[in-house]
């Protein structure tokens, strides 16, 4: 039982980071139906920006998070403007391949500028343990979970209770109608990229702290995992990405704890396949039947 609780806590804190990345995938997909494969690399750049800022200035967690989130938000908007906007009316596969290209570009540029070897991320959070019976929780886990939950609450608030959130939801249901109701669609899409990328930037810093090491290719695996999390929960659905991310984190932790960490990815993929066979639109997705 203790073992189970322990793994559950580990899983939730790791999963909440997947969820942060997954939110960016799902929001961008929701609004322009693009799987933004460069999203994992924005997360990686978030970690690097945090790393540079924290080591150069010696400042703490909150300023590092803010700088990294702002940088990634701007980067997301610029990428959208340069790489995706000209392809707005092209086929979806074209945009998808462009996204893969952007991903390679970001990885290679980071390798060129920062070198290929791992960097040690400064410890921005106090090291320490809280013991509850036989279950231990690190301070880091508490902070990571608190920050991700705060960010998710903020996101949920923006999406459901503000004018730009309503515009995002309107554009994602019917772009043309939204345009005719006075919504600036381009601005709304830019904002969506900014929001998703800022969350990825935050995730980058948090992962840097969690594993205390970052590399230019660190975005690959979590990027794919977060994409799976988004599909898992139902792509395009915001709460789906949160649930999907946390579930994948828990599954991974439980498999590593009870079986072998070698199998954790395999189990995640098998469960994904089962879910998609049973509920093709994901956990929270609605299956839309074609009317004949």
């Amino acid at each position: 039982m203790n073992q189970f609780l322990q793994q559950l806590i580990n899983g939730i804190s790791l999963g909440s980071i997947y969820a942060l990345i997954a939110l960016g995938y799902t929001m961008v997909y929701g609004i322009i139906k693009l799987i933004n494969f460069a999203h994992g690399d924005i997360y990686m750049l978030g970690a690097y920006v945090g790393f540079i800022f924290a080591t150069k200035t010696g400042m703490g967690l909150v300023p590092t998070l803010i700088v990294s989130m702002v940088f990634c938000a701007i980067l997301g908007v610029v990428i959208e403007m340069i790489a995706y906007k000209p392809l707005r009316n092209a086929t979806r596969i074209t945009a998808l391949i462009t996204a893969i290209g952007v991903s390679y570009f970001l990885e290679a540029s980071t390798q060129k500028i920062m070198g290929t070897s791992p960097r040690a991320f400064p410890a921005l959070l106090p090291k320490g343990l809280i013991k509850l019976g036989k279950v231990t929780i690190t301070y880091q886990q508490v902070f990571i979970l608190t920050i991700t939950i705060l960010l998710m609450i903020a996101l949920q608030f923006i999406v459901t209770k503000t004018k730009i959130g309503r515009a995002m939801r309107a554009v994602s249901t019917d772009t043309d109608a939204a345009r005719l109701m006075g919504i600036d669609v381009n601005k709304t899409i830019s904002f969506t990229f900014a929001l998703g990328s800022a969350l990825a930037g935050a995730a980058g810093v948090l992962v840097g702290i969690y594993y205390s090491s970052i590399t230019p290719l660190m975005g690959l695996v979590p990027g794919v995992k977060a994409f799976i999390a988004a599909v898992f929960g139902g792509i395009g659905i915001i709460p789906g990405a949160m649930i999907g991310g946390i579930l994948i984190g828990i599954i991974e932790a439980l498999v590593s704890g009870y079986g072998s960490s070698l199998y954790k990815d395999a189990v995640v993929y098998v469960i994904l396949i089962i879910i998609l066979v049973v509920k093709p639109a994901g956990l929270l997705g609605k299956n839309i039947r074609e009317k004949v």
Binding site: K163, R166, R169, A170, T173, D176, A177, A178, M181, I183
Partner: peptide, 19 residues
């Protein structure tokens, strides 16, 4: 009809007022 189907009736109106 091209309403924002997944939004509430009230939110449909509010989207119109966005500008």
């Amino acid at each position: 009809i091209r309403l924002f189907k997944e939004l509430t009736v009230l939110d449909n109106i509010k989207v119109g007022m966005n500008k």
